[in-house]
Design a protein around this nucleic acid. Sequence first.
DNA 1: ACGCAATTTGTGCTCGGGAACGCATAGAAT
DNA 2: ATTCTATGCGTTCCCGAGCACAAATTGCGT
Lengths: 354, 354
Amino acid sequence: MNPRNIRIKDIARLAGVSKGTVDRVLHKRGRVSQESLQKVMKVLEEIDYKPNLIARTLSSSKNHRIIALLPSASSDAYWAQTEEGIREAEMEWSPYGVSIKVLSFDQYNKESFKEKANEAFEDKPDGIITAPIFYHEALLFFELLKNAGIPYVLFNTHIPEGKPLSFIGTDTFNSGKVGAELMYLGQHEGGKLAVMHLDEDINNSVHLLDKERGFREYFKNRNTLPFKISEFSLQPDKPDFEARLNRVLNDPELKGIFVSTSKGTSVVASYLAKKGKNNVRLIGYDIIDENLKHLRTGIIDFLINQNPKRQAFLGISHLVNYLIFKKKAPETDLFPLEVITQQNVDSYLNSRLH
Amino acid sequence: MNPRNIRIKDIARLAGVSKGTVDRVLHKRGRVSQESLQKVMKVLEEIDYKPNLIARTLSSSKNHRIIALLPSASSDAYWAQTEEGIREAEMEWSPYGVSIKVLSFDQYNKESFKEKANEAFEDKPDGIITAPIFYHEALLFFELLKNAGIPYVLFNTHIPEGKPLSFIGTDTFNSGKVGAELMYLGQHEGGKLAVMHLDEDINNSVHLLDKERGFREYFKNRNTLPFKISEFSLQPDKPDFEARLNRVLNDPELKGIFVSTSKGTSVVASYLAKKGKNNVRLIGYDIIDENLKHLRTGIIDFLINQNPKRQAFLGISHLVNYLIFKKKAPETDLFPLEVITQQNVDSYLNSRLH
DNA sequence: ACGCAATTTGTGCTCGGGAACGCATAGAAT
DNA sequence: ATTCTATGCGTTCCCGAGCACAAATTGCGT
């Protein structure tokens, strides 16, 4: 009310020019004489002008269409949570004229991604958010977007060369280290540990291998290494899957399993539950329903939360802030590596998304 | 651009009235004939009108003054982080004309709170955020605020009877359970456990006792209870403090210590470090610098993160969203109970505030 | 000195919602 | 019958930034 904010009009008055001139100086669009420029600059130096974001936005308040290009939610609870985050973000931002269209592709099929990416591009949206799990195809897509001037935000999988507006995700290498730490906790006698990658193509496994590297790194650092770590890449749809998994689980020396994906975690947990085997420490990823169940029974000992819902939600928020409020998004927004246990899982389920 | 949002003007056109009338209907300020009301209501039922938040806010874009009434940051790293959160929130919201004045009181002195609370009230701000650690004094203060129509948000300590706009904090009871779980982890042989409350007046200890209750509850639920839990309330400024603390720490059967405050955690950690005693599991609260140091050396095994910075930041955000955007804040915003370890602490330090 | 073009500067409208204002009409009070 | 009041309803301006366009000024050449 009283000490009102400084407006362009005020600067104009102080500098003895018109608001049009101040506007041109502020936006560096030239057509200003040296003299006027000096006068305005001088005033700007003295006062702390902060444009009214609300007013600025009002005039350009049109509808903003965002496309979310995601792996299909129907096949995978992880991506279902992602889509939930997208939906919540849409509710949050719809009063600002933001609409979000979700395009789903098959996470095991590059062609499907290419097809949907093309569809997204043809639609000429105002912004795109995607989980670029196919490296090369994504890069080509980004090239298109950049040329068309469509801003895009990545989450889940980082492709720095893609130069996105922003990346939202976790530090996969360190999440492996956290997994290892939790494995080591109060379990120092040594034995065998298994790192498992399930159901994943080589294409999108860079960040899974990062997790494994981190996991191994932790034990490397403690030079008295009592553990033998083996890696297993199994595919549940292959006929020999169960046999191979059994072979790993039946090893009496096996002390722990670290699974690199949320879905893989639930698969392994189910097998352990079926065999009634609770003496192996199981550490995996994410609070998807099936993992939650096994966490409560104690089959799963720890989950590392990648927070897919929040990743998607914040991705949209960064995009919207850029589109509407012209705020620059952080280059990378790395989430904390959240350790989920029986006792704190409910507090995660009950907490709000911001 | 094309499928523009529905505006008041559109509703007016569809209903065959003027926008003034629609406005009156929307805001229920009467002075509308039954006939016009019917027409407008009918249109409103058919379409999904969402007011443009940006435009709505513009007209009332005045300065909003918020007062943050907090324990002094100079004496306590926990409250220093709180103040940081306030400052970051101020930066975030200053483009919207929000200014925040921090009033600090002595966390061990009720009179100091009363004095500052009065000062805050006299200032007639547009909103108040406070950590109401003195129960009765806070209630009186809230009464004042309610009568004056000044909205207030609480964090850290919940006083539901105070009927705040919103409470931001953690579930202290369950955080005790998490502490107990971490204590029990891989440590099942039994022994003695100490719960410590340091440096706290009885006044603001309700939530500390909650933590203790939660801690005990966890062990109560596992009926084969191998641990004997004792409680110690010590005050570092008392002459016998060191002696009493020593007596607890020297017990060879002591297996773990759970400290209920951030400051207390660092005090106990320092003593353990000085004595070179690393065979006792220490679990405490918050990533303040001194705790961080001891976490890295392994003196502290786990920290439960109450996230004071984020609590304050979000408190302000809820208040601002209410004041400016007329969004109703959540009644309670309980944070997840974050488990901090050596390996994930950096990811917390590096992550952004939202 | 004049004309014309190039540059500089100012004006005014837009965005959408909020609300004061003022006009018109109907009914009540004098 | 005339004044007064209450009610209904449309118009208009405001908020502050952005931007198009018109107006004003300068500069240059003849």
